[in-house]
Amino acid sequence: MNSFKTILSDTLHLFYPHVCNGCGSDILDDTNLLCLKCINELPHSNFAQHANNPIEKIFWGRIPITSAHAEFYFAKESLIQALIHQLKYKNNMEIGFYLGELMGKSLLNSNRFQNIDYLIPLPLYPDKERKRGYNQATVICNGISSAMNIPVLTNRVIRLRFTETQTRKHRTERWENVKGSFVVKNESILHNKNILLVDDVITTGATLESCGQAILKAEGTTLNIATLAFAAK
């Protein structure tokens, strides 16, 4: 019987191989998304453990936040870029959830992200979300929620207008591009709450700043920020 199961498993693996989402290797357990080599190569930042880290410094003098974190360093042609590309453009929500869980565990191991009431994903413009089929920030939030047992609050922060890609804009242009793009619907639910605003990648922080300003209009609200990756300029 065990021999038959082994043959069946090998046959299924031949026609439906389970491969690493990072490097494509088939040397991994069927329950894992990444092989041990790729797991060991994930460029964790450990920012969650440290006050005044590079993510928090981005917002100095711009918006009052309690704590900020990015789980990984982002670089072009890197493993993290490939995984985030799969999440955003290849419908690979599984990898987004997995990376979100890793970030949630890092936040749990820090004493700087305690008593968070809600996770809020940075909203996409509705037409863009419909076209993609999901918001990648919500997928990440679901992973964090699985690790931290904190509810995800969606459809409360609204993106009012489509904004052009920020990729080739400098800091001032990025801010002008997203200024006034967000509003909170029924903001009383955020009164006196401690919020963690979540996105995939942070560069200048202009979009998160604009969204954070809308959230902080709610009475007594405090704001934290977390992203999967940090793309240093």
Rank of each mutant, 00 (worst) to 15 (best):
A147W: 00
E164L: 11
N135H: 10
V157D: 08
I150L: 14
W175I: 14
T154R: 11
T165N: 13
A137R: 00
L160Q: 12
G143L: 02
E173Y: 07
Q136T: 04
I158C: 13
L153N: 06
R161A: 09
P151K: 08
R161D: 09
C141E: 01
R174H: 07
C141D: 07
T138N: 06
R168F: 14
T165A: 15
I150G: 15
Q136R: 04
H170V: 03
R159A: 02
R159F: 08
M148H: 14
V152Y: 03
C141R: 00
N142M: 01
T154E: 15
R159I: 03
E176M: 12
R159G: 02
T154P: 08
T165P: 01
V157H: 12
I144E: 08
F162D: 11
R161K: 14
E176P: 04
H170Y: 06
R161G: 09
R159Q: 09
E164R: 11
R159P: 01
A137V: 01
A137H: 00
R171C: 06
R159C: 06
R161H: 12
R156M: 10
G143N: 03
I150Y: 13
A147E: 05
S146K: 15
T138H: 07
Q136Y: 04
I140K: 05
E176V: 09
R168I: 05
I150Q: 15
A147S: 15
W175F: 07
W175D: 00
V157A: 15
R174Y: 03
G143D: 00
N149C: 07
T163F: 11
R156V: 13
I158N: 14
A137Y: 00
T163N: 08
A147I: 01
T165D: 13
R159S: 06
V152N: 03
F162A: 11
T172M: 01
F162Y: 13
M148P: 06
A147L: 03
T138R: 04
W175M: 03
N177C: 11
Q136P: 00
A137P: 01
N149H: 04
R168H: 15
N135Q: 08
S145H: 01
E173P: 03
S145I: 00
N155M: 02
E173I: 06
N155Q: 10
R168Q: 13
